[in-house]
Design a protein around this nucleic acid. Structure first.
Lengths: 188, 188
DNA sequence: TTATTACCATACATATTAGTATGGATTCGC
DNA sequence: GCGAATCCATACTAATATGTATGGTAATAA
């Protein structure tokens, strides 16, 4: 109920977006109403309409924020994690899974389906960059063309939908699952 | 604009749900408002509130309808498709992909996230039955325990997220992708 | 054929949410 | 310190959605 930030409630645009992503992950997109976020931030609508033109502007900014937070940073972190392409792939699987980066996929894509003009454009760009990045890992591992593409799609699907399947494995089993998946998908 | 059913607009509960699923797939869940569905069906709200108690009742009925339409029928059809477990898996991949059965996954799961009480319960049940069914195929193929479970999750993820990734392959490539995926996932 | 049920139209009430207008309070450049 | 820009509160409007009350028509059973 009380403001979530320390000092006397004076917010930046990014604080708005970060709080919104948190609500999106924990309570779903139906709870992502303007005044509800205001309450979580300890401010009123006056703040919202200073930072954002309207709700459309907010949603697009949020999806853009998501794409900037969870695409390039992950890719560059993974790129620097190892020299061996196999180890980088292993790092990708672990980072995305344990970092909870996949928990926004469903909500974001539900928006994309109902806003083909702007949200879908951003998501499509993210998809393309993810696919190219992961496929390049498999190319480095010696898979060519469609084989690399298929493995990239399967890997992204495995990571993304792992977070969406409501029947969960225990945590220790999830790392076992990842290892088994890694062995299968890198086998020549 | 005109009523989509032939005779003089006299609907059953299932016709309501089928029309709703169609709107959900084509226009997204934001367009799934009561009066919008009324318009598509050529009736008014009086009809809606005769068939459904309120909107919550409608949403839960819709998710239940989805689970009944796209779980047991697919499983039984696949079960009868061949004797060999590998051919049944191949049949599953083709039927789900070409039948467009995965296009509701995102919207349904977005609802599940925001309604843990009832919608999520239904989706969880669907997930469990899907996992058990697909895992049993891999068990038949000689994979035991975690190997079968991992392969079931990967297969379901591949099918579900294939429909959600906005960067699409051409249609002929999708069948190639399926074949490549099949070879990889069934390799011992 | 008549009474009853199934199904729907209409008109209304209510709630929720987005959006606006305006002024007040902090902070910052200078 | 002072003006200007930044950031937000308050009070309001307007649009959109759900839900209700009630009556009407077509089908069905007897």
């Amino acid at each position: 109920m009380s403001p979530r930030n320390g000092t006397a409630t004076r917010l930046s645009r990014d604080q708005w977006l970060a709080q919104a992503l948190d609500i999106l992950a924990t309570e779903g997109q139906a709870k992502l109403r303007i005044e509800a976020i205001c309450k979580a931030l300890g401010v009123t609508k006056g703040s919202f309409y200073w930072h954002f033109k309207d709700r459309d502007d907010f949603v697009r900014s949020l999806v853009l924020f998501w794409s900037e937070q969870f695409t390039d940073p992950v890719m560059s972190r993974v790129s620097q994690s190892a020299d061996d392409a196999g180890e980088r792939l292993r790092s990708l699987l672990r980072v995305v899974s344990e970092g909870g980066y996949a928990r926004y996929e469903v909500s974001i894509r539900a928006w994309a389906a109902q806003d083909p003009h702007l949200v879908a454009v951003i998501v499509r760009d993210v998809d393309a960059r993810r696919l190219a990045f992961v496929a390049s890992l498999f190319t480095e591992l010696g898979f060519a063309g469609p084989q690399a593409d298929m493995r990239a799609r399967a890997s992204i699907a495995f990571l993304s939908f792992e977070a969406a399947i409501l029947v969960k494995s225990p945590d220790e089993d999830r790392s076992v699952m990842r290892d088994l998946f890694f062995e299968m998908i890198t086998r020549r």
